[in-house]
Structures are given as C-alpha cells and as structure tokens.
Amino acid sequence: MKRSLPDMQSPKIEVRGLVKSFGPKKVLQELDLDVPRGQSLVVIGGSGTGKSVLIKCILGLVRPDAGSIKVDGEEVVGASRSTMERLRAKFGMLFQGAALFDSLPVWENVAFGLLAARKLPRGEARARAIDVLGRVGLPAEVADLFPAELSGGMQKRVGLARAIATEPEIIFFDEPTTGLDPIMADVINELIRRCVRDLGATALSITHDMASVRKIADRVAMLYAGKIVWEGPVAEIDHSGNAFVEQFINGRAEGPIRVAQAANG
C-alpha cells in the first residue's frame, strides 16, 4: 500500500465529492471541504442539513454513498478495519448528545481513551481524568458520579473532557456550547482555542452559536443543501458577499435559505 507522506501544506482532512443519502433523503450532495492542518474550522448551517452526518462520515461511523475522504493523505472511505483503527487513534470526538457511557463513572468515561489506547494504569488515568475535568470547569467531586446524575450541560463538558483527554491530533466538536450558560460557553470556547493553539490540534467544530464561531474559528464553512456554499477566514464572515451566510449570521427568516425546504429536505 502506498501512502503519500503528508507535507505541511496539504490539508489535514480533504473531502471530495461526498454523497450520502438516507433512503430517498439526499443529505450530502457532492460536498467538498478542506480542513487545514493545525487550524480550527467551524461548519455552520441550518438544523438537519447534515453537519453531524458529515463528521460521522469522516470518523468512518457512517458509510458514504460516494466520494473520497482523506486524513493525512490516507483514504477513509472503504478503508480496512485495521487502517480505520489506526486513523481513529488520531481522533477525538464530542458527540452532539454527549454519548457518555452510562455504566461507567465520570472519571472512567474521561479516562476511557487513556485506559484503552494508551494502557495507562488506572490510578494514573484517574488523576489525569480529574485534571482534564478541571479544565472543562468541573470539580473533582463529579469524578465518581455517574453520567445520569449530571445535568445536560455537565454531561456535555464531560464529553468534551473525554474527547480531549488523549490529546488527539484531530478533534471534532459537535455543538460544544449548546446547553451551556454564556459564561461556561466562553470557558469552553477558550478551551477549544487552547487545544488548537497549544496542542497544535486540528479542530472541526459544528455550532449554531455565532459568538462561539467568532471565538473558536480560524475558518468558517457554510453547509446548505448538501454542499459547502461558502468557505473563508472568520474575519471575512461579516462581509462574505454570500447571501446564505448573511442570512444565517444575522438570523433572518427571509433570504435564499428556505426553512421549510431545509427542514423537509
């Protein structure tokens, strides 16, 4: 198998012609997207446009109908299980619904990757978990609680802690600040920024929260009707000259985005 060496210019993640339908419902249609190495890209777009599906395709959790996804130059679509397992070691993922393991206490959730992939001793993993919990603003007392005993926002932060605990190269954040109060949301935004700045991680985030976009994004991409309709640096978002983006960031009901169609596909 030939593996092209990733140079520093090539994008960390390269998506080309990605197509995914669920039955008659076309979700992604010939989508192209580059996530630059060591940068934070935020995907915005209406509810139900397929943002989560896009991330799951990259993670290999959803099998696309067509197209190519390359991570460090390696093809994900149709990759063997061993290739996929190796690639996934680079990933961290915060699920939209947190997806915490409800049979394990909080600290084991956070330390799961450390225990599974890094084979850290349990005592050490626990200490690391409590440290990461602190970084998402959770006290050490929650470490021994079970996920069901936490509020929605706390679960989200535990999910975030789990995603970053192994210090992965690529981190996916699916709506990291949804369900958090504005102050905590800012703490989380700052944390995501730090992951990219200090750890050199590549981040691909999804959010509806424009304050969060401005804080965490280096670049922004807008998903509409199965395609990326605009992509550019975050500084240009206010004068993108793109009607879709302008309607979205200003939250107007009138414009080219037809809500009824977006909701029904």
């Binding site: 959790l61 997806a99 393991f101 409800d102 799961f112 599974a116």
Partner: peptide
C-alpha cells in the same frame, strides 16, 4: 436493552472513536 440503548444514544459510535472495538 443495554446494548440497544448504547446504540441509539451513540455510545457504540463513541466506543469506536475511542479506539475500542
């Protein structure tokens, strides 16, 4: 019931992303 709940709440997907089969 347990594995089904893990499936519908994406816990099984989460396992895969944490390098666990």
């Amino acid at each position: 019931a347990e594995i089904g709940t893990m499936r519908v709440t994406e816990q099984i997907d989460a396992l895969s992303t944490l390098s666990t089969d």
